[in-house]
């Protein structure tokens, strides 16, 4: 079980990790697109951390919704609506809960994926964050189904996400700004798939 105090800790851990990887994410983005992913995401998660005192002690839904709205308002670009919608949808899935179990976590990730797909109109295999997140969700769901605890399930999810990142190197982008360079995007790992994996690793680090 994780409680709402742990969730606050996890959002702070995500911000710290993204801040630490800011330059690397920006460099990845520079190779295939416009080089602002790390900068924008760090600005957004830092703003989300600044908002946390206003929601501490509240339910998962409120904390995640506030975080999502802050990301939409402060990240900009396409990562803002995508990450923001993901957190907001996860918040809807966990409404009124002050503690959650592994199955709830899997449900929240599923809702987040739904939100990302609704907003970005992408599917797996287009060289986006979904190429890490969807396999991660599958691995996590199977692990929880088999009785693993959240920490173990998340470890399996992170492994699948890294395989997803490797997969993004082999395909060309058909969504987002990297799609403009066509075949030249092959060989580069997707910045969004990379950053969402860092988010999962940051959450795992708090367990």
């Amino acid at each position: 079980m994780i409680d709402n105090a742990k969730l606050v800790e996890q959002i702070k851990a995500i911000a710290t990790r993204i801040e630490a990887e800011k330059d690397f994410l920006t460099q990845l983005d520079n190779e295939i697109a416009d080089g602002d992913h790390g900068i924008n995401l760090a600005r957004g998660f830092n703003a989300a951390v600044d908002k946390l005192p206003t929601v501490e002690g509240k339910d998962f839904g409120t904390i995640l919704k506030t975080t999502g709205m802050t990301l939409v308002s402060t990240v900009g670009g396409s990562a803002g609506p995508l990450y923001g919608t993901a957190f907001m949808k996860a918040g809807v899935a966990l409404k009124d809960k002050t503690e959650i179990d592994a199955a709830d976590f899997v449900k929240a990730v599923e809702a987040a994926i739904g939100g990302i797909q609704m907003r970005g109109k992408a599917v797996e295999g287009e060289k986006t964050m979904l190429d890490a997140l969807i396999p991660a969700h599958k691995a996590m769901a199977a692990a929880v189904e088999a009785g693993d605890d959240l920490k173990t399930a998340l470890e399996k999810a992170i492994k699948a996400a890294h395989e997803g990142i490797e997969f993004t190197k082999t395909i060309k982008a058909t969504k987002g700004r990297a799609s403009y360079i066509g075949d030249r995007s092959i060989g580069h790992q997707d910045p969004g798939a990379t950053s969402i994996t860092y988010v999962m690793e940051a959450i795992h680090s708090t367990l």
Partner: peptide, 29 residues
């Protein structure tokens, strides 16, 4: 160079050009 990035979006040698460029400093086609 995007100010916040501090570095150019791509590099070109003196005798090179990028065709099919957009307006965001991203590489061309």
């Amino acid at each position: 160079t995007v100010p916040a990035a501090g570095k150019p979006g791509f590099e070109l040698a003196d005798n090179e050009m990028e065709i099919g460029i957009g307006i965001h400093g991203e590489p061309g086609t």
